[in-house]
Design a protein around this nucleic acid. Structure first.
Length: 621
RNA sequence: GGGGACGUAGUUCAGACUGGUUUAGAAUGCCGGCCUGUCAAGCCGGAGAUCGCGGGUUCAAAUCCCGUCGUCCCCGCCA
């Protein structure tokens, strides 16, 4: 049982505490031994306080004992210090530290635990590979940056819970041991001991349960909940991740959008202390592709794509005309002021476009009033002028062109747009300084313009999957089509591949995009059994499978399901953006590597023969 | 499933292209000594590396070749 019980944290002592007898507990952060005087920086999660051994005032046998003890202290020892708060001598205050005007003169020191030399320093300045950080995550978490990330994440959750509580939503838990569904990502499976040969699946999202809660009359539900998807990882994708999930009855897009916007206002106000403007701008899915080439545009800067198919059509440039003949399009991107781009850099851009499937990247440099380009000779002057006008090109600009199928053109140019936006410093790319959030001044240093939200609405209901040779839902199969499509869909019994009208059917889904990241999405759901069955039929899910996998949902829709809809945020991505982190791994306490392996626990790992047997499982040799 | 980058003291990197003066080097951390005001403390000294692993080429391999494992980034995938 430790003798010393802490009275203060290492972040709170100030001049006004001078003279008080206090007790601090924490980790030895740094020590500086000057021979006659020894400084210990004591750290806990609230801050750092300097302890001084051997100051002139202290002398005698006791002081010598303490000094001897202090020399034994090492980095990351866990200690308690009882002592008196003293002002620092004239001229030795450290203004970098909130506690920098005082120091503690120890009277007693208790070592609560020794520590081996840590594999890396507990400091934000020190570079450590992610693998080492994950293996020693409990040390990594002591670093201020990680602590702040987790504190901030906690505040987001707290603000979210308060917000939903005040708006009449109740938090309901849904099962983790549930049913595998055919659509969507791969499931994580859990074998059932009591039901040989049967498996639970961990939920990819609580989608079906939240709909059942609406049928159950809960009306307003929310949950901060883990979801599981067994797909390949990225810096913004972990196999288990957290959603802020909610659903409402008797609702429409307008309600869902406004509650979502208000939630964001609340979170940004409470967490970052800034006001974000409402309402968020709205782009249709079609418009988003047309102007930015993507359904998750970064609208912090303009630099929009300009289609020039009509001009290219009239020109003599075969490559453009060939693409158009194959039902393709030609688009231009104006890289303002980059006419000086070197051949080598152009090749790099071309390669980037090539990664997206583009067969080439045409360019024109605007010099004075003329064009410098290998392809100008294929264009008449008035065509060049038309292009320049369309692209709003001026002297010094660089125009980039891709001609191909729309998907490839959009893919390539949106990628180039993002790249060039960064290159041209069009994005307010100031290091997110979160210090103010944790300091006493609470001085605002984060501008609302750092955060650009945009709604992407009216996506198509179906898209054709070339690989599987069938239509699949753009959002998920429970998304309601827009009402005007009902008669069209009712007439159909299947979706022919080349039926243009199918891709024109719009859905009542919506995504929320922040700074080019998709941070959430949702939809108004189908609440009529007939329509839901129709959709399954059109998606060519065999009736037997529909009954097996979704029977309970269809059944529930037959017992008085209210119209309902909702939304789900990717909490990890949201917190990643709020903290200015470059990976969601930095806002998750215990993430896994790209192979979904934990260097900390060594999970996943083999299990005993006996466990397998109990679960009625045999491993392939 | 595919493409790319990387793997060398505890940690972060250099050395590799062009094999041999390399006894594999630096910084930081670690250990010891000196030092009464530091806060990236300073000065002096010291320890610390199966060069990811396996195989091959060669008189000789951290260095070249093949395989393999791991980490990160990207494409596919992620309703």
């Amino acid at each position: 049982m430790p003798k010393l019980k802490r009275t203060h944290t290492c972040g709170e002592l100030r001049k006004k505490n001078v003279g008080q007898e206090i007790i601090l507990s924490g980790w030895v952060h740094k020590w500086r031994d000057h021979g006659g005087v020894i400084f210990i920086d004591l750290r806990d999660r609230e801050g750092i306080t300097q302890i001084v051994f051997g100051r002139q005032e202290s002398s005698g046998v006791r002081a010598k004992e303490l000094e001897t003890l202090a020399r034994k202290l090492r980095a990351e020892y866990v200690i308690s210090v009882a002592g008196k708060v003293a002002p620092r001598p004239e001229g030795t205050a450290n203004l970098q530290l909130p506690t920098g005007e005082i120091e503690v003169l120890p009277e007693e020191v208790e070592i609560l635990n020794k520590a081996k030399t840590p594999p890396f320093e507990v400091s934000d300045q020190v570079d450590v590979s992610e693998e080492v950080r994950l293996k020693y995550r409990y040390i990594d978490l002591r670093r201020q940056k990680m602590q702040r990330n987790l504190f901030l994440r906690d505040r987001v959750c707290k603000a979210t819970r308060n917000f939903f509580d005040e708006h009449g939503f109740i938090e309901v838990e849904t099962p983790f041991l549930t049913k595998s569904t055919p659509e969507g990502a791969r499931d994580y499976l859990v074998p059932s001991r009591l039901n040989p040969g049967s498996f639970f699946a961990l939920p990819q999202s609580p989608q079906l349960f939240k709909q059942l809660l609406m049928v159950g009359g809960i009306e307003k539900y929310f949950q901060i909940v883990k979801c599981f998807r067994d797909e390949d990882l990225r810096k913004d994708r972990q196999p288990e991740f957290t959603q802020i999930d909610y659903e409402m009855s008797f609702t429409d897009e307008k309600d869902v959008h406004s509650i979502t916007e208000e939630l964001m206002v609340r979170v940004f106000k409470e967490v970052l202390k800034i006001d974000i403007p409402l309402p968020f701008p709205r782009l249709t899915y079609e418009e988003s592709f047309r102007r930015y080439g993507t359904d998750k545009p970064d609208v912090r800067f303009a630099m929009e794509l300009k289609e020039i198919s009509d001009i290219a059509e009239k020109s003599e440039f075969k490559i453009f005309k060939e693409a158009l003949k194959k039902n393709g399009i030609v688009c231009a991107l104006n890289a303002k002021g980059l006419a000086e781009t070197s051949r080598k850099e152009l090749d790099e851009l071309k390669e980037m476009a090539g990664d997206c499937g583009a067969k080439g990247l045409a360019w024109m440099k605007m010099t004075d009033k003329t064009f410098q380009s290998p392809i100008t000779k294929f264009f008449k002057q008035e065509e060049l002028d038309a292009i320049a006008e369309r692209a709003e090109a001026q002297k010094g600009d660089l125009l980039l062109f891709v001609a191909d199928k729309a998907k490839i053109v959009y893919d390539a140019l949106s990628k180039l747009r993002t790249f060039l936006g960064e290159r041209l410093n069009l994005i307010p790319r100031r290091a997110l300084d979160l210090d103010y959030l944790f300091s006493e001044q609470r001085k605002i240093s984060v501008e609302p313009s750092f955060f650009s939200f945009v709604w992407i609405v009216d996506p198509p209901l179906f898209e054709y999957n070339e690989e599987e040779k069938r239509w699949s839902p753009v959002h998920h199969p429970f998304t309601s089509p827009r009402e005007e499509a009902f008669p069209f869909l009712e007439k159909l019994t299947e979706l022919p591949k080349d039926m243009e009208e199918v891709s024109q059917v719009l859905s009542r889904a919506y995504d929320l995009v922040l700074n080019g990241h998709e941070i959430g999405g949702g939809s108004i759901r189908i609440h009529q059994r007939d329509l839901q069955e129709k959709i399954f039929q059109l998606l060519k899910i065999p009736p037997q499978e529909v009954k097996e996998k979704f029977g309970f949902l269809l059944e529930s829709l037959g017992y008085g399901a209210p119209p309902h809809g909702g939304f789900a945020f990717g909490l990890d991505r949201l917190v990643m953006i709020l903290t200015g982190s470059s990976s969601i791994r930095d806002v998750i306490a215990f993430p896994v590597t790209q192979k979904a392996f934990s260097p900390l626990t060594n999970a996943p790992s083999a299990v005993s023969e006996r466990q397998l047997k109990e679960l009625h499982l045999k491993l392939e040799k």
